[in-house]
């Protein structure tokens, strides 16, 4: 389901968190879908089950999943998280944009870049949301 990069110097549990979060945000793991069992994933990745446990606890804390006692971890509604992710991306984008303007990259060139990125992506992935809708649609699932 996920692959670890052993040359990545981050703690393994952080990698597990990030990779599962990415799968949830991308909609590969859907709302209310059960995550693999701790035993199963630890065995599959040949790593310590305590590491998986810790990663699952962190996903819970960040709101990606919820836990049903005795059953396991399930994917929470992802719309609020996707909105949060959008805001984070926009923040990063603003920082980069400020740097780009400071380095005297023209607006035309920036917009051209953006346009070419969009074209590259629409060639590979039709499911991505368009750039023009940062508000997000669909109802939010607040618990």
């Amino acid at each position: 389901m996920i692959a670890l990069d052993y040359r990545d110097p981050r703690p393994i549990y952080e990698q597990v968190v990030q990779k599962l979060a990415d799968l949830i945000l991308a909609g590969v793991l859907q709302e209310n879908e059960q995550l693999p069992s701790v035993r199963g994933l630890a065995s599959e990745l040949s790593i310590n089950p305590n590491t998986i446990q810790r990663a699952y606890a962190e996903l819970d804390r960040q709101g990606y999943t919820y836990t049903v006692k005795g059953k396991g971890s399930f994917v929470a509604g992802s719309e609020p998280l996707r909105e949060k992710r959008r805001n984070e991306l926009l923040k990063e984008f603003r920082l980069l944009a400020a740097g780009a303007l400071q380095a005297e990259i023209s607006m035309e060139r920036l917009i051209g870049e953006l346009e070419s990125v969009r074209q590259e992506m629409s060639g590979t992935d039709k499911n991505r949301e368009s750039w023009g809708d940062p508000t997000g649609k669909g109802e939010n699932h607040h618990d």
Partner: peptide, 29 residues
Amino acid sequence: SLFAEAMTDRGLTVVLASHNLRELEDICD
């Protein structure tokens, strides 16, 4: 993988001695 299964199934504790740091890094608490 077998260690991981035994740990979740029955709470096995493993003590591993090694001089290979890289080996331990991935699996130890």
